[in-house]
Structures are given as structure tokens and as C-alpha cells.
Amino acid sequence: MCATCGCNSHDVLIGGKRPVRGIGAISFRKVQTPPDKTKHEHPPADTTTRVIQVERDLLARNDTFAEANRRLLNERGVFALNLVSSPGSGKTTLLVKSIAMLQGKLPLAVIEGDQQTENDAARIRAAGAPAIQINTGRGCHLDAQMTGQAMTQLDLADDSLLLIENVGNLVCPAAFDLGEAHKVVILSVTEGEDKPLKYPDMFRAADLMLLNKCDLLPYLEFDAELAITYAHRINPQLKVMRISAVSGEGMDEWLNWIEAGSRKAIAAK
């Protein structure tokens, strides 16, 4: 919960640099003169107040940026996926494996989201793909504006694949559209089967669930069928694949799904 993790956008870094905040960017501007508390608590009788009808949605700002990203991605035939999970479910490992297996088949780039460090972007670059790291600081999710700025810096190729690794968090990223074609939620078998019930928003927002670390199933009590039943209780349409980013099990199905999506994105340009 951001109320406890202090989610906000103060110290965001994109590619190690402080991002430009354009017109209408999230601002933390303080008023010039601090308000006079005494005056506020005891307003003079002649103060005129009026009611302003605002009627504006709180997520509308993010949605505007997300739509701009989506338009750009669509125009260029870029198939974008937003990978979400708890920390440690295997997002970066999966990306590294996918990059190796897609080598020479589909050009791709990666946006890495973490609160701190360039480590994951470095792992992606070592695997042979261009990557940009967004450090959200205390922020617990990527938003569409920072994603758009990272997209610009990445210099995306037409007809390519964009993989976005969101900040490890099953709560907040569910509410923030980045302009992606699909959210892909990764659940690993070292977590609880009931995670879909505990974090329903994320499993509802996703179109595909990857059940990762299936190579460990023989050593664990984890009931894969039960986890999938719970996920379908939250989202009956959710597509599910059992994979292991380490042994490679199920990777073909996942990469075929990506390649089919990419072909569709290119055809729809």
C-alpha cells in the first residue's frame, strides 16, 4: 500500500537522469506565501466563497498520457507488454531468457522499473537488448508519463517488441495504464496459491498469467490447479501458461504468444 510505502513521484530517475516534467506535469510547487493559518481557521465574515464544480477523475491525467503512448506504439507497430508481479517472481530472469530466445527473430527493447539501482537494466543489456532504467524513488509503480519519456529515450524500432518490467508490487501498478497492449502478471510457485484472491485488481487487469518457477513444483506443496482456479475466479478470461524461466519449460508457448501479438500489431498499423 502506498500509504505505507510512501508512494510518490519526487525522486524519479529515467536512465539515471531527472526527467523533464512538461506542462501539467505532477507538480509539488509550494505556494509563494505560506497560508495564514489563523486567518484560515477564523475567516473574516466578509470573505466570499464560491463553489466550483470540477467533476474530474483522479486517474484521468495518467490515462491521457497512456493514450498518447498507445497511439504512438500503434502507429509504429510496436507490441508493448507491461510485466507485473511481486518482487522476486522472476520478471528479469524471464526477460533475459526471452531476449536470448527471440534473438534474430524480433527486435526488442526493455524499460526497467525499480525503486532504486540500475541492476536490472544492466542485466538486460548484458543479455543483448537495449534497456532504460526508470528509478521511481519512493514511487511504487510506473506511470504513463515516465514510460512515455523512457520510450523517447529508447529510440524504439518500428515493428518491434517493447517489454516493460514494472516495479515489483501487486497493488498499485494495476491502476496505472502505461499504454501497453496487455498486462502480463507473473505468479511464481514459491508464493501462495491465494495471491489472486489477495490482490484481485492485478489479476483482473491482466490478460495473461505466467505461472513461473514450475521447475520447482516437485519440491513444493504448491497446488498449481488451485492457484489457477483462484485466478479464474477473479478473471474468467485470464489466459494462463505454466513456465520456468530457468529450465525453459513453457517458454515456446509464451514466445509464440508474443510473436502472434506482434504480427497483429504490425498488421494493424
Binding site: C7, G24, L58, L59, R61, A175
Partner: peptide
């Protein structure tokens, strides 16, 4: 969930209305 960033959106809407 993420009430802090939502509160920031509220502030932003207020500043734009102002």
C-alpha cells in the same frame, strides 16, 4: 491502494482549477 499518488492528483486538479 496508492492513496498518496491519488492525493497528489487531487492537488494537481486543484492547482489547474485555480
Amino acid at each position: 491502494m496508492h492513496e498518496m499518488s491519488l492525493a497528489e492528483s487531487v492537488l494537481q486538479i486543484i492547482e489547474e482549477s485555480a
